[in-house]
Design a binder for these strands. Structure first.
Lengths: 211, 211, 211, 211
DNA sequence: TATGAATGAGCATTCATTCAT
DNA sequence: CATGAATGAATGCTCATTCAT
């Protein structure tokens, strides 16, 4: 693939997320995407073959980057790199990591807010099962991993439904990211982060003594 | 409005949520909606004027019912009805109410799962601002009210961003409801409820002592 | 036919000419006509059976009244009622009659301007052949009759194409009536009449001596 | 604009006048127009954007050609090119020009009879105000100019309402052209021309001596 | 005699896709 | 590699007509 072609494809990705974030997949027209990318309509089909293929590629591209960002945040949290060496005594590793991953997700959505919207609205369509599977494995997987470690550290009750909790955290961050973008775009992201980790750490309800 | 007409409109509501939940607003065709409702296509336009108006009416209808269910759950939670009489000692009023409202939202989405999908995917379109405003006021408002009571009871730190927290809880319940419907439709709803209140009450992280 | 029904039919005639004058036959909807007449849509079909039948009836009704007005104007112009008794010496009867008929057509279109519009735009559709035949016979027929008398009076050259000339005069009056209604609705009708008879009597070109 | 595209647009013009002449603007379907032009329906919208825009463009196109033909006929009528040098003695310039313009209008409508029909039936809709303004200025303007010259030559009484007379002549030619096309399509056009100039020059009524 | 809810064929318009250049 | 004119199936919407009340 030539460099020119790669550039065209990236411009189309950017244009497509924006347009699809604004209108939704079905309502977004190839014409609008091509126009925003500054190319002719035919070029979209020359490069991707179909609107659906463009969107699939775009979803995978975005999900991989999101998952990478989250995994990176998890990986840099004072962990030893060997899972079974982590424990509750190791500086509260898992819960600290949870906060870091939440922050990474927030940051990613701050930078790629349009992608957050696309994810939220299209994630549940049966059409993109592959991409969704990837999201579940790679992005939700990071949360699940963190929570599993928290269980093994004893920081969390042993019978927690880790998969569901991962989805809950992910959905909470996703929803509030979008709301922030729509309603309070210039509030510092740290503020939102503080609210969310408060909720997650029980500093809202005051913990076990009052719950 | 005749009884016949009212019946037709309700049948159209039901058909429309289902089809739109499956395909999204734009991809859902009026033809498909009419067919599922068992009426002619013209009947949709005779009754609502446009696809958009049908959807607006449907959103309002659903949001009002959801908000009612949530408010009812809040209202029946051992509260005295006089705000300033509530306190942390009164059986943990606000936090107990929070659990009840979460349960109400879960139950509503269990019964009207299609509506949950529609809400999640269409809530952010600028087109439905009125409905969204209503959702924010009436449904999110219930969570905000509960959290405000929790603040005044001292069960929650005083400077919590109540609005954002309300959105976070709502989004968490919404997201997990949809996932449950897609992946584990016959798991008892109580199980999901337990996971969520664990998260919210800090029984996940072990509360302030470990967080 | 009861009186109530007759009233309904007349109200529908009036409403229909107005709406059709504004929009044209095809674009005029039965809904709009019914609404302007203050009856339900079903009533139109109850009374006329179809949109087309309503329009046919309306055309005949209007054409008959126009033709009557024109014939009356012709009849009151010092003629004896016996064609062969008229001659060029009888005070220029035919040309005087021509002026009077033009005036009658102008007056009719002043009062029923909407009908003029309808006539102009729908007269040429093959759909209304019966009505058009009637127009040709009864309304254009009056002009043709006057012109034939003018020929026999010697006031007009003998080989004039009387039918074509009748159409020309009718069309001239029709066109200018509509223009007047659109552009100069409060100019006195006599002024338009003067311009037209000037054209017809050669007082424009100054007659044979200068032409 | 490519040559291919220009050709498509012209084919659509031709097809559209024909279909609209037969059915009227509203009743003419884009399907029928596309089919007659031998292109797909989408091509109409690709080229003009809407049925209304196609019709507007078509009206302007036709009116400009008509006005050109009329102006050319006026321009070639033994005039010296300097307005104030024209006078009644100069071979009856203005009235001769009037005949020539009438002939030009007749010839144009003979070649583009469908356009005559379209003009007559759609000219009065408020929707096409721009085109109508153009018709008034450019086509009726030719008649008005001729008549004004006739006034200044003294061939016509000084207080003639030149605008109205222009409309009257135009309407007369238009109406009779259409009738000829419908009833006597193979009569020579010169015969119709003779009848009309007879009317206009007072050779019908015998001029001032008998009027 | 009149009504208005319901119908469905028909229409203008959109848009993903193709292909000649 | 890229373009944009052309396509036609699909869609939202209109409206004359029917019919139960």
């Amino acid at each position: 693939m030539t460099e020119r072609r790669t550039g065209t494809r990236l411009r189309l990705f950017t244009a497509a997320v924006e347009v699809i974030a604004e209108q939704g997949y079905t309502a977004a027209t190839v014409d609008a995407i091509a126009e925003r990318a500054g190319v002719a309509k035919g070029t979209v089909f020359y490069n991707f073959g179909s609107k659906e293929a463009l969107f699939s590629a775009l979803l995978e591209h975005g999900i991989r980057r999101l998952a990478d960002a989250m995994a990176r945040a998890d990986g840099t949290t004072g962990e030893t790199g060997v899972a079974d060496e982590r424990d509750a005594g190791a500086g509260g590793g898992a819960l600290e990591a949870l906060d870091a991953v939440v922050m990474a997700q927030l940051r990613f959505f701050e930078e790629y807010g349009a992608f957050a919207r696309v994810l939220l609205t299209e994630m549940w369509r049966t059409a993109w099962q592959d991409a969704v599977a990837m999201l579940r494995e790679e992005a939700l997987g990071v949360y699940a991993g963190v929570l599993r470690r928290a269980v093994s550290e004893g920081a969390v009750r042993a019978d927690l439904d880790v998969e569901t909790a991962a989805t809950a955290v992910f959905g909470m961050v996703l929803t509030t990211s979008i709301e922030r973008r729509a309603l309070h775009p210039d509030r510092p992201i740290e503020q939102l982060h503080a609210t969310l980790v408060d909720l997650l750490h029980g500093r809202v309800s005051g913990g076990p003594f009052t719950g």
